[in-house]
Amino acid sequence: MKYIYLDQNKWIELAKGLKERNPIYISLYETIVKNVKDGVWAFPLSSIHISEAMKRRNEISRKQLLDLMFSVSNGYAICDYITADNIEFNTWINNKAVNYSQLKGEIIKHDWAAIIGLSTENADIKFSERPCLSDELDKIKQIIKKLSCGREIFDLICNVVNDNIEEDEAFYYRCYEEGRKSFLSWKNEIKSLEEYKDKHLYPAYLSNVFFEVYKERITNLSPRIRINITELFEENSKNKTTAIANLEALPGFNVHNRLIFELYNNPDKKVHEHDFNDLAYLRIAIPYCDIVIGENYWCDRVRNYSLDKKYNTIVNTKLLSLISD
């Protein structure tokens, strides 16, 4: 099965093509439906998809888009970036590496609850004092699993994600503005150093961000686990190339910081609030989906840094490439 992540605009493009009865989009939709039914393709939804759809003021348009997403995605969901980051970090501290291909089953699930970082697999089933036969328990679990991909759960998730959408976007944009201001100040300081070289800017930035993000979590690790991290940092101190490779071993952290660095360090790029929705999905979609179809700017940047090659992901800007390539 190939996991295909569509940028929100691509979902809208597909919905519009179907509404207008455009033959090529009808053909694409028929191919999608067949491949989803055959288990060849899956189109996982994220919280970003839901929040963007719920912002549509036209009730009919909003319902049509959500209906399309519900039917095509068929219960497949990709978890939020905080959950993904926790999974990656815990894997990294235990193994000093992250095999992203082995984590796909934890990041992408056939379970709507994964959109908000939950899982029906962990539902606590308790029975009264009478014993329950194993086959009965299996039947109950199958019913719960079936319901986890149903419309009622989907609608509940939509209502949960709908809360504070605009406030979240404004908050993340303010964080970006503060972060960029801090970055430019730091960049000006280190550029005055004699040993400064442009090629060292990103590694220095990545190292600084790593300790800002993970310092507290590392401090609170058990002594046994801290040994792994200590050994890793000792290796890092001997070889700067190895040091950066070890930090980039966290897939989401790596993708996010490559792209946010692009925003901080590119004065010509006009930044919009929706850019942070793009970043929130790219940091998960690039490592864990087989195909990502998105907007021109970010696809270009992903390819520029060879992130598509690193994670063996096809990155494209054309929705119709699904049936034309």
Rank of each mutant, 00 (worst) to 15 (best):
F89Q: 09
K63E: 08
L103E: 05
N74H: 03
V271H: 02
R21I: 04
F43N: 08
L66G: 01
W92R: 00
L184C: 13
K270N: 14
I323V: 12
K145E: 06
T242K: 14
K55S: 05
S71D: 13
Y264R: 03
I140F: 12
H110F: 11
L193G: 02
F89W: 12
L201W: 15
K37D: 13
Y176I: 09
D198C: 09
I87Y: 01
T219S: 10
T230K: 02
P287F: 02
L45D: 11
Y311R: 11
D124C: 01
I116R: 04
Y297E: 06
L18F: 15
I314M: 13
Y264W: 09
A243V: 02
R151C: 05
D7M: 13
I140P: 13
A42S: 09
F261Y: 14
D155K: 10
I78T: 02
K181C: 10
E178A: 12
T219C: 03
F127Q: 09
D168V: 10
E177N: 15
A204I: 04
S61K: 09
D135L: 15
L193C: 03
K191A: 06
T120Q: 12
G179P: 05
E152T: 15
A53Y: 06
M1H: 03
Y173N: 08
Y25K: 02
I143P: 02
F210V: 10
F233R: 03
L259Y: 06
V302T: 07
S324Q: 05
A204T: 08
I323L: 07
S306F: 12
W186M: 14
C175H: 15
E20Y: 15
K309H: 03
N220D: 14
D325Y: 13
L6E: 07
Y25Q: 06
S27N: 06
V209A: 04
E231Y: 09
K96M: 08
D85M: 06
W298R: 11
T91K: 03
S128P: 01
H256C: 14
I107W: 06
D198W: 00
L65W: 08
L147K: 14
P287G: 07
I218H: 06
I225K: 01
K145H: 14
P44V: 09
S321A: 15
T83E: 07
I93L: 06
S306V: 11
I218W: 10
L6Q: 04
V213L: 07
S27A: 15
I284S: 06
N312Q: 07
D7P: 12
D278W: 11
K240T: 12
G117L: 02
P23F: 07
C289N: 05
K191L: 06
R21K: 11
V98N: 01
P267Y: 08
N296F: 15
T83N: 00
E234H: 04
N208E: 15
M69D: 02
L259P: 06
E248I: 00
K269T: 10
I87C: 05
I93D: 02
A123W: 01
I260L: 04
K63N: 00
D80G: 02
F276I: 12
K104A: 07
D278T: 12
